[in-house]
Design a protein around this nucleic acid. Structure first.
Lengths: 331, 331
DNA sequence: GTGAAAGCGCTAACAG
DNA sequence: CTGTTAGCGCTTTCAC
């Protein structure tokens, strides 16, 4: 910095001002400083700056599963909103194991991130609470009700109800829900399904499964084996729906003529023409942006009570759902 | 730190040693220090440490497209190898625009990452060269031949040849390549295709396209329109192959009975049962680990010439490729 | 193992 | 705008 100051013929303090983008510097000197910095290959030292400044202008993001494009989209939203407000992201992807997640959080705390946004975390609530003691925390995609932790979720109950409503509107009465087990939000999707089915005087058949492709395949295989295929299936997420789709087609059924299928999440897979799955959409980018906004408010101190945003999902109709067949296909 | 030392009844220097995991501390005192730290909620300050230590123990990773699970897998490999060697990752995902990529690199330099690994970067070579002047750099997935920059790529020419070989072995003689335009490695895939086709005395038909689904759809639509469907299609990546697949099926063709299709990358989409695409596999995690290993060698100073790893791809046979049909289907 | 001193590269506060 | 002083939280070195 001293060298830059010398070369630009100004004081060290002035260089500091320029590097911080202060407005109280004449354009002329500013350019001189920038030129000198360029020539000398000078680059501000982020660590030194955040040490002196006592803030890092960085928010940490912990992505539970980088392979899930759902979270990638949410991260997009966080990033956009963050950079619009001068914050840098410190992404910390995590692979499966819970300990990794704890470590990622610890790492972000050591880096003194000004806030942390968690995407679909599976870690113990206690860990989150402890972290929240030292930094603002927002969580996306997990139903949490903790003091000091902001939350952005979609209304899973409502989403499931949308699916049921859609299918019932098409004349379906025999609908099976392939659930998401212990997955995030799965409990609520199941709940919404059951509630709305009962509301329509229908029997809510639920098959225990998980959030992956194999679960969908197995669930349908089971239905076929017991000769218990419904006229419509509502899967707890898109991945299991794709599995179900495959098994159904493998059984010689045509969608939506013989049977209807609805997924959840509207991931990019659902949108592939080859799949074209009717599904429930969550505004992912927006959810990420909201979470960022929440921690921003905390950083600026404009809010101190926990915030909780429940976002309305939306049904996307594609080619796997249609009117109930007039007669049942032999299974 | 002083507080911790006081509470543990030791010196400040000793606390420092413990926090750095030095082996020259008696277990007894170590535990006392850790306990005190725990009770006081003390956490080492990463910025202060890297300032004093003049190294961050952090390697930066720039991921070109978070939505591409291909890169997510590579990042996995980098992460694994990095944490095995005590390095932390500073992920910096980027969204489409080249400027973002430059900014990401700049940011990592400011954070004094000990090295940078770029995944499928599109940025100008000049930017990379300049960055390489201040820190070791490794690039995955882009054919680069620069002094001071390490590279990990798969042998795209070979991969394309594998595809041709596979199809020719199944009796196909009329094969079209839907190419990847300016995408990473696309030129070489095209080259491999052409070379091997010519080697077999066959005419290499190539259709200009890109690395996305729409390209695949359009390419096939074009072939159909001109009544020029081959018996097999080799797409430059899985995404365009899925587009092609859809359009082919939409045209009433059955795979592989009526026509064969091969993709590239073996992304998770190709593996979905519903898709089950024959494709070319690249060992993604391994490629990431290799790149990390390369910068590690640079950091440790055990190598100074540029390294270049070319990894052999592999054909994964699934259900979209089969023997050439005995008679042509009406198109 | 301790204690002291110096310094990493920057920001902050203030008098001039 | 300059110049100075102080300090962010830690590591490093070195004599003890």
């Amino acid at each position: 910095m001293e060298d830059v100051a010398a070369r630009a013929g100004v004081s060290r303090a002035l260089v500091s001002l320029v590097m911080r983008g202060s407005p109280k510097v004449s354009d002329q000197r500013r350019e001189a400083v920038l030129a000198a910095a360029e020539e000398l290959g000078y680059r501000p030292h982020a660590a030194a700056r955040s040490l002196a400044q006592r803030r890092s202008n960085t928010v940490g993001v912990v992505v539970n599963d980088l392979h899930n494009t759902f979270f990638a989209d949410v991260a997009d939203g966080v990033h956009e909103h963050a950079s619009a407000h001068g914050f840098r992201l410190l992404l910390n992807a995590v692979w499966r194991r819970d300990e990794d997640e704890e470590e990622a959080i610890e790492s972000l705390l050591e880096h003194r991130a000004d806030a942390i946004v968690l995407l679909g975390p599976r870690v113990d609530e206690a860990v989150l609470v402890e972290a929240a003691a030292s930094v603002p925390i927002a969580v996306v995609g997990r139903h949490l009700d903790l003091e000091d932790i902001d939350v952005v979720i979609n209304d899973d109950v409502c989403g499931a109800e949308l699916a049921v409503e859609h299918l019932v509107g098409l004349g379906h009465r025999d609908i099976v829900h392939v659930d998401g087990g212990r997955g995030a939000g799965a409990r609520f999707r199941r709940e919404g399904f059951e509630r709305r089915m009962v509301g329509h005087g229908l029997e809510p058949r639920v098959l225990a499964a998980d959030y992956d492709e194999a679960s969908g395949v197995n669930a349908v295989a089971q239905l076929i084996e017991h000769d218990a295929l419904p006229t419509a299936i509502f899967c707890a997420n898109d991945l299991s729906a794709v599995g179900a789709l495959d098994r159904l087609e493998g059984h010689g059924l045509t969608l939506p003529d013989d049977i209807s299928l609805v997924g959840y999440d509207n991931t990019s897979i659902a949108g592939l023409r080859h799949v074209s799955l009717t599904t429930i959409h969550q505004p992912r980018r927006e959810m990420g942006a909201r979470a960022m906004q929440m921690v921003l408010e905390r950083i600026q101190g404009s809010r101190s009570e926990a915030a909780r945003d429940v976002i309305e999902p939306e049904l996307i109709e594609r080619s796997t759902s249609g009117p109930v067949p007039t007669k049942r296909v032999p299974s």
